[in-house]
């Protein structure tokens, strides 16, 4: 879903640039609470893995392809703020080294895949996790469902930006309908990859998975007693 230069006009690109810069600045602060000596190396490798994963375009119906966005995958493994930074680094390298996604469109791409993809995906993940059974096995299915929904949500966000600042005179409704319907299908691939990767890491090291932390507390082991009452 990498937006090239030229799709959106200059004011819209400047606006999404400001949004992206603000989001990344907040993420730089927020990530301090998520990262320590133990999780920082994992986060670097999650970003690397997302870059690699995005190179694999999988075919979907009718001569179209899709690829991983990785927002929910990164957020669930290393935390939402760090997830935003992972996707942003990937997009910067793709834009500057690989000419994948425009340069004036970099703010747009960070906003769509980094901020919307990660933030909305993470909130959906947290909501689904809260209604599933409280065990570690719920993390991968919750992540998969959130990943599935996050892709069409990002497609809606693009369509809205196109409605505001698209340079070509194309009806918004047509773009929105086509974007959402194709990206629901691509979302199925996103869900499958997210389930596979999150599930594998959960199986190996559940203690390292950010999205599994609330499910790993053992209140019986960590009882807090007032001094003198024991």
């Amino acid at each position: 879903m990498h937006v090239p230069d030229g799709f959106l006009d200059a004011p819209t690109s400047v606006a999404t640039g400001v949004v992206a810069a603000t989001g990344v600045a907040l993420a730089l602060r927020g990530a301090r609470k998520e990262l320590d000596d133990r999780t920082a190396p994992l986060a670097g490798l999650v970003a690397t893995f997302v870059f690699a994963g995005q190179m694999i375009n999988f075919p979907v119906a009718g001569g179209t392809s899709g690829h991983l966005l990785g927002g929910v995958l990164a957020a669930v493994l290393v935390g939402p703020w760090t997830g935003i930074l992972c996707i942003s680094v990937v997009l910067v390298v793709q834009s500057l080294l690989m000419a994948d996604g425009g340069v004036t469109a970099l703010g747009t791409n960070i906003t769509l895949m980094g901020l919307v993809g990660v933030a909305v995906g993470w909130l959906i993940f947290v909501a689904i996790r809260s209604i599933l059974p409280r065990r570690v096995g719920s993390v991968a299915p919750a992540a998969a469902l959130a990943a599935l929904i996050s892709v069409p949500v990002a497609a809606v966000a693009f369509s809205l930006l196109f409605a505001v600042g698209g340079t070509a005179p194309v009806e918004t409704g047509k773009v929105l309908t086509a974007m959402v319907s194709w990206h629901v299908v691509i979302g199925l691939g996103e869900a499958a990859i997210t389930a596979l990767v999150v599930g594998s890491v959960i199986a190996a090291r559940p203690d390292l998975v950010y999205g599994a932390r609330p499910l790993m507390n053992k209140p019986s082991d960590l009882e807090i007693r007032k001094a003198g009452t024991a």
Binding site: H2, F7, M55, N57, P59, S65, G66, A178
Partner: peptide, 20 residues
Amino acid sequence: ASSHPDGLEYVAEKTGFMDS
């Protein structure tokens, strides 16, 4: 990897804004 256009490129071609 598939060399088909991705979702956004495909929609841009079909609805007519790829040239922008």
